[in-house]
Computed example of a mutant assay.
Amino acid sequence: MSEHSDQAAGTADPATEAFVAHRNLLFTVAYEMLGSAADAEDVLQETWLRWVGVDLAEVRDQRAYLVRITTRQALTRLRTLGRRKETYVGPWLPEPLLTTPDVAEDVELADNVSMAMLLVLETLTPTERAVFVLRDVFDFPYGEIAEAVGKTPAAVRQIAHRARSHVAARRPRDAVSSDETRAALQAFQHAVETGDVQSLVDVLAPDVVLLSDAGGRRQALPRPVVGADKVARVLSAGLRWIRTETELSFEPVQVNGWPGLIIRFGGETDTVMAARVENGLITGLYFVRNPEKLSRVDQRTALSR
C-alpha cells in the first residue's frame, strides 16, 4: 500500500468511522425486521446516504441515530415486501445466512435470528415487528424506539406488550442447545443417506412441519407438509429420485446461528436446510432452494447486538 493510501486509510471521516463501527448492528436490525439479507443491504445503503447528510455536531448518540434511520428505512421496505409476498410462488422462507461462530456463542442472539423465530416475526405487523426487535432483541429504551417508529413511548409500551405476547405463544417454550440440534440433524442426515425411512420417522416429531421455498425457480412443495409419516415419505421419494440422477452430499454448517445443512447435487449448492428442534425431535424443517436466496452461502455473515 502506498504512503498516500496509508494516509487516506488513516483519515477516514467521522461519519464513515461511525457507520463502519455500527455496520454489523445495523445489518442485524434490518435483517431481523426483513428476513432478507439482500433487502437489509439495500436498507444499509439508504441509511448511509441519509447519514452522510447529517450534521454530526447535532447528534447526541450516533448508535441510536443510525438505528433510527435504519429502522425507518426497514419499515418502509417491510411494507413493500408484504405486498411482494402476496404474489410469491409457494411458501416464503427467510433468506438463510451462514453465520460466524460468535453468533452461535451468543445464545440469545442466535435464538432471535433463527429461521424458526424469523417465521414467528413474520406474523407480526410491521410496527409490532420493529418494536419487538428493538426492545426484546436489542434492548433499546422505549423513548428511542418511539422516535424510530413515530409513536409515543406509551404507545410503544403497549405495542411491545402485544408483540411479546404474540411471539411467546408461538416460539419454542423450552431452551434447546446447539448440541441437541446438531445431534438431531446428524440422525436426520444418516437416515436420508442410508434411505432408512423408519429412522427418519424416529427423528421427526409427530406434528413436524416441512416448508420448501423455491420461489417458482426450482421444483418445490407448493404447500407445507405436516406429520412425521408424510414428511418422511415425501423426503424419501424425492431424495431417492435425486440419487438416481446425480451425486447427493451434505455439509454441516451454521445457519442463522444454529446447526444446519447445505445440500449439494453433483457438487452444486441446491438447498440450505435449517431445523427447529424440541425435546430432541425435529419439529420444523426449512428447505430454501430459491437461487436468489442462496447468493450468500459462500460467505459467513457477522451479526451483532
Rank of each mutant, 00 (worst) to 15 (best):
H190P: 01
R135I: 05
M273K: 07
G257H: 08
A237L: 14
R233G: 09
D229K: 15
E144C: 04
A146F: 07
R217W: 09
Y142Q: 11
E193C: 05
S236C: 06
A214K: 04
V234S: 12
E268G: 08
P252M: 07
F140C: 08
P206A: 11
Q254V: 11
H166I: 08
P224W: 07
A220K: 04
H161R: 15
W241F: 14
V209T: 15
A184K: 04
A274S: 15
A168T: 13
R170Y: 02
L239K: 04
Q198L: 10
P222Y: 06
R173A: 15
A169K: 10
N256A: 11
G266Y: 05
I159Y: 02
F138W: 13
F138Q: 11
W258V: 04
E193N: 12
A214E: 05
L134H: 07
L211M: 12
L210C: 04
I242F: 11
S212Q: 15
R240M: 13
G267S: 08
G216E: 00
A228I: 01
A220I: 08
D202K: 03
P252Q: 12
E180M: 07
T271D: 09
P259V: 07
A232N: 01
S165G: 15
A175C: 02
A155T: 13
K230N: 14
V272M: 03
E193S: 13
A232D: 00
V201C: 03
